[in-house]
């Protein structure tokens, strides 16, 4: 009986730790995402639009999940240095210059997490550690 109770308690403890672990990650995501929404409004929305829909053939939309997925590790570099040259988004080419955004690495992580999970995208969190690593290997 004693063992059973102890077993039950330890099982509960394990369960609780798993649940709280999950909610910790969830909480992290929410922190990144909501802060990222603010960063987006201040630094990105003027050009890319409130719904990430861009502007005609001048400014690309942020709704091409495949492009974002294929360029996850370049995104922080695009924010830091801007983006020139031709890119293809949803099969259409865009060749205007994107200016650099004056953002701290934490803000980059936040806004990229926001974009990764808005406008129909579901690409998960981009953490500050990931941003710092990506920034080191910018071309």
């Amino acid at each position: 009986m004693k063992y059973k109770v102890a077993g039950l308690i330890s099982l509960l403890a394990v369960l609780i730790s798993i649940v709280s672990c999950e909610s910790e990650a969830d909480l992290d995501f929410k922190r990144y995402y909501s802060a990222g929404s603010e960063v987006y409004q201040t630094h990105c929305q003027n050009c890319h639009g409130a719904k990430g829909d861009g502007l005609s053939a001048l400014i690309p939309p942020l709704t091409d999940s495949l492009y974002l997925k294929n360029n996850q590790s370049n995104l922080a570099c695009y924010l830091r240095s801007g983006l020139t040259g031709t890119i293809t988004i949803h099969g259409k080419t865009f060749d205007d210059k994107m200016p650099a955004a004056d953002l701290a690495p934490m803000e980059m992580a936040q806004v990229l997490t926001y974009i990764n999970n808005s406008f129909g995208n579901k690409l998960g969190v981009i953490t500050i550690d990931r941003v710092n690593a990506d920034l080191k290997s910018c071309k």
């Binding site: 502007l55 005609s56 001048l58």
Partner: peptide
């Protein structure tokens, strides 16, 4: 102009 012009263009469209 990277600031308000895209918004103006979007609205003018």
């Amino acid at each position: 102009c990277p600031s308000i012009c895209p918004i103006m263009a979007r609205n003018m469209l």
